[in-house]
């Protein structure tokens, strides 16, 4: 499988371990990444809030670049950021709805010979795992099952709502894919209240107290449900849940110590890769409860006894 790959901004900024992990994991899954180096920020919803036309034009540009790769043989466009998925889907909804509007937006792209044609397929890595690769195939590739690892899924808002735009239906229960993937990799899904709630990141600069209490509540709920770690397909959630966790802990007055994995990292661990090469050492909250650092065994105790 060959994908026109949009890594987003944060995976190459404050969460470089995500970008790195994706690069490691893709070949192991048989995914060839054609990186869209010239594409631009999705606007994370904020540019759309500022100017709809600007956001739609910027994302049409990214889509057009991806479509060039698709013409050259890529199967679809892939992203690794829930927020990109949501922001891009919103723009795509408008662009695809009206030929007249699309033509108006495309005028901004004409000087460089770019044009967005209706109907690009743009999927988050999570969707690619389930819908393109398939859970059965993924299961076959597991070398080190996450036995006894208790994982709390954390989706991020943009990838689960609104259901119509995100394409969640009976055939595509995309709001349960994280659970399916965790199980396929041999882990145990932890049921807790926060899985589809907001991490608080979007208001971390406007209402920091509210923002950090949001993150703190979900991390605390996961802890109460005895999760070993969370996993998220969204690097922005990761910023609030992991990078800000020391501040978050203070905001909720609770020592949280909850490791948060990026989705490709969790896949990589099950595929037998070392924590280090997946960038786990870069996390603010070190996933010591997930990883036995002396032996690099996942889900330490359970894995040992299973072996």
């Amino acid at each position: 499988m060959k994908v026109a790959y949009w890594p987003g901004c944060v995976s190459r900024g404050f969460t470089p371990e995500l970008h790195g992990a994706m690069a490691k994991v893709a070949p192991a899954l048989g995914i060839e990444l054609i990186e869209l180096n010239r594409a631009n920020c999705s606007g994370c919803g904020v540019i759309a809030e500022h100017s709809q036309e600007l956001a739609d034009s910027l994302n049409a540009r990214t889509f057009a670049l991806a479509q060039k790769e698709i013409e050259q043989g890529a199967d679809l466009m892939m992203n690794i950021c829930s927020t990109c998925q949501g922001a891009q889907s919103e723009c795509q909804e408008r662009l695809d709805a009206s030929a007249a509007y699309r033509a108006e937006v495309n005028k901004h792209l004409t000087p460089e010979g770019l044009e967005y044609a209706k109907g690009i397929v743009n999927k988050n890595f999570l969707w690619v795992l389930v819908e393109e690769l398939g859970l059965e195939e993924l299961g076959k590739l597991v070398k080190r099952p996450l036995t006894d690892l208790r994982v709390g899924p954390f989706y991020g808002c943009y990838i689960v709502r609104p259901t119509d735009r995100i394409g969640i239906d009976d055939e595509h229960p995309r709001d349960s894919y994280l659970e399916l993937v965790i199980e396929t990799l041999g882990g145990t899904v932890v049921d807790y209240a926060g899985a589809q709630k907001c991490c608080g990141f979007p208001i971390s600069l406007m209402q920091p107290d509210t923002s950090f209490k949001m993150a703190g509540r979900h991390l605390g709920d996961a802890k109460d449900a005895e999760a070993d770690c969370l996993v998220t397909p969204c690097p922005l959630c990761h910023l609030n849940l992991d990078m800000q966790q020391p501040v978050v802990s203070k905001a909720v007055g609770r020592d949280l110590q909850m490791p948060v994995l990026h989705l490709p990292q969790m896949v990589g661990l099950a595929l037998g890769m070392s924590p280090k090469e997946l960038g786990l050492s870069k996390h603010v909250v070190k996933p010591t409860s997930v990883i036995d650092w002396s032996t690099s065994v996942v889900g330490a105790v359970g894995a040992l006894s299973a072996a």
Binding site: N40, C41, V46, H50, M206
Partner: peptide, 24 residues
């Protein structure tokens, strides 16, 4: 005074300047 407008402009201007977000 909640930095709402400034935050909006920070993102808009970052993408204008760099094409991507400069979180720093």
């Amino acid at each position: 005074r909640n930095n709402g407008e400034r935050h909006e402009m920070a993102i808009v201007n970052s993408v204008k300047k760099y094409g991507t977000l400069n979180e720093a």
